[in-house]
Write a protein that binds this DNA or RNA. Structure first.
Ligand SMILES: [Mn+2]
Ligand SMILES: [Mn+2]
Ligand SMILES: [Zn+2]
Ligand SMILES: [Zn+2]
Lengths: 146, 146
DNA sequence: TGATAAATGCAATTGATTTGCGTTTATTTT
DNA sequence: AAAATAAACGCAAATCAATTGCATTTATCA
């Protein structure tokens, strides 16, 4: 469970650059995505907050972040809404993701992985393919140590 | 949209062999799975019925079919519950699926494909993999012809 | 500072799926 | 074949994540 240096990111500026107002909750939220190394659900966001916030505001913030290229939806074991940080190349105009996801069947967390080689398929029996999703299911390092 | 011969299957017997009672609706339902070549949602089942049936009975039949190895859940674009027929090897003891799925972004149908080669991965950076899912997204043959 | 747009809170709604329970239908046992 | 047991069904109600409407607050911009 390594932590990457936070690199002194100005989260307010980041929000502005993506066309979003910098409110205290949204600054907290984007920072939370930067320091968490797995995908976040609404409930996990609530658990990380030191104050109360309406779930509706969380859903709206997540939708706005996604629309403006800050985060992307990831698969979740229970089909709940769950998001992870985008690469800096993403914007509202172009969301591009071509990476696999790792799902732990024990703790139910989702991780993005960037160095798994996704097969390239353009066509399958007349079916035109624009996107190929790969989901690796299993048990994460932490959950094996039990 | 080819149709495979129905091969004179005794659907009542098939239900019995899987530990299920042969009611008229369940015979109709398993037959519908056999003659449809894409995965079925609850609404599509209703559209195929010539009489009324409670949605709850459909959900319960689907759960029972899945539990007893007749059908398996497939991914769906809108995260609705959708099922497709299992291979005859499946039973309540052992459900084994190792095939990819094709999702048409236009008509939203899901197809099982059996000859797409799934990458074999047992481990990824300490993460133990038991299952690897592949989803091909694109446009099906019918939808391209518009 | 004042006008305009974005974000928030609260209440209500939506929509798919599940649960409880009494009744009907199918299967098994006498 | 009738009685006993178990499975499936129908209807109403509940669940639960997610969305919507609307009034209020906060942020942005001129
Ligand atoms: Mn990802
Ligand atoms: Mn399948
Ligand atoms: Zn885990
Ligand atoms: Zn299609």
């Amino acid at each position: 469970m390594k932590l990457i240096d936070k690199e002194n990111i100005d989260f307010g500026l980041l929000l502005s650059q993506h066309g979003l107002s910098k409110t205290s909750f949204r600054k907290f939220l984007i920072e939370l995505f930067y320091k968490t190394h797995h995908a976040l659900s609404v409930d996990e966001i609530i658990n990380n907050l030191s104050y109360q916030i309406d779930k509706v505001s969380i859903y709206r913030a997540l939708n706005a972040f996604e629309k403006n290229g800050l985060i992307h939806k990831v698969p979740d074991k229970a089909n709940l809404i769950k998001y992870a940080l985008c690469k800096s190349e993403c914007s509202s105009e172009k969301h591009l993701h071509n990476h696999a996801h790792l799902l732990c069947s024990i703790c139910n967390e989702t991780y993005c992985i960037n160095d798994f080689k996704i097969p390239v398929v353009n066509e399958y029996k007349g079916f035109l393919i624009n996107n190929l999703k790969v989901i690796l299911e299993g048990s994460c390092v932490d959950c094996q140590q039990i």
